[in-house]
Design a binder for these strands. Structure first.
Lengths: 221, 221
DNA sequence: ATAATGAATATTGTATTCAAAATTCAAGTC
DNA sequence: GACTTGAATTTTGAATACAATATTCATTAT
């Protein structure tokens, strides 16, 4: 083993670690929306002092996952319908650029990988394996995003989707909508293979708009 | 004076104040890109302890204005050409959505205000008053953004433009480009008055793409 | 003279302490 | 009994103290 290939000993700061763990807990719903985050309690459970915790809370507040009110502490951000209505057009816009940029940069191997993922995803749909479907779905969108080759875009997309990811259980997808989503993905794959940026961009944008419409409809009941 | 209309006594926390001041100093170039930010020195000049400062630094890092390396402190983020190339397409996408949304929501008084600002801006152009021009220009874009009625969008736009605002002195606008920008703004005003969302969106996007092209050209020299 | 080593120093990361504000709660008033 | 009022408690904000890491610099060996 050469010294060049040695992996540095991973050492993280407590505040970084806290950001990751708390973010995960919020996105996975372990910390409920609206829940009060007592500094004392969190410090006790993680066995850290308030200093690194408070630094972590500032970061999470910037990501929109918690709300900080001066002298009154932190609460997990609530996710209202209007939050979703705000976020979706922005997500759509970001997806649209990522699609346009991706077409300019995507490699043949990446397209092959996308085809494989797409096939798997369709199989999951046919087998009504929702969890497997979501997994492939996310990977496809991630692949497009990465192909766009724009770290800032990745970061913004990650931050925004983190906020609204918690909504994924708010409305169950209808079978009809599911089929529609799969059909849209066929188009998305096709546009990618043709490297048609503007088309892919508008497809992704429409895809997301439809998703919002279905969430809205499901919530209206 | 009724008790309902009383404005609360403004009390800010030190870290919030520090975020604002440091952000301002970075954007205005008082803190140079790449400059090392010594905690000790900053604490001394603001006469605060390291605790609120460190909280502020975490926030500024999230905004992309500084770079934090564990155990090695903070430096003012450098602004490379590739940062601009990354940021501009995203800015364009955000402008495009804000244009679309604005058309759906903008009121007649707001349009009147936009017309006035536009007129002033053209006058500044004719008088070759660059600073006055920029000021009106920013107000027009801010007006569109506010009319979109989407706080999340405002926040993201603000954060992203903060990063690249420092570049405004990197390349001086050519007279030709300036005239072109004014012409584009005529179209933008027109589309707004017609409340043609998709058109306004694409105009704003193109406007920004042209801006990047001119910056890129100026820097190539 | 240059490079390597380790002690001295400085800087960052974390914990603790102190101060200020908000919350709780019991006593008192209507 | 419901509503104030203010003391006691809790919680948050900021400063200080301590620990760990990085940097500097003088010493030593080559």
């Amino acid at each position: 083993m050469s010294l060049n290939t040695v992996i540095p000993i991973p050492r993280r700061t407590l505040h970084d670690e806290l950001v990751d763990r708390l973010r995960h807990m919020i996105i996975e719903g372990e910390l409920a929306p609206g829940e009060k985050l007592s500094e004392k309690d969190i410090c006790a459970s993680f066995d850290v002092s308030r200093t690194p915790l408070r630094e972590a809370l500032k970061v999470l507040a910037k990501e929109g996952l918690i709300q900080l009110i001066p002298n009154r502490g932190a609460t997990v951000a609530k996710l209202t319908i209007s939050d979703l209505e705000e976020a979706f057009p922005i997500m759509g816009a970001l997806e649209a650029v990522s699609g346009e940029l991706a077409c300019a940069n995507i490699t043949d191997p990446e397209i092959s990988r996308m085809e494989r993922l797409h096939k798997d995803m369709v199989d999951c749909f046919k087998a009504r394996d929702m969890s497997g479907y979501f997994q492939r779905n996310e990977l496809i969108h991630k692949l497009i995003l990465d192909a766009a080759n724009n770290p800032t875009l990745v970061e913004m997309q990650r931050s925004l989707s983190g906020r609204i990811r918690r909504a994924r259980y708010m409305a169950n997808m209808s079978d009809e909508r599911w089929a529609q989503a799969v059909a849209e993905h066929e188009e998305i794959l096709k546009a990618t293979k043709e490297r048609n940026g503007p088309l892919l961009g508008s497809l992704l944008k429409a895809h997301l708009a439809n998703k919002l419409a279905s969430v809205r409809a499901a919530l209206a009941e």
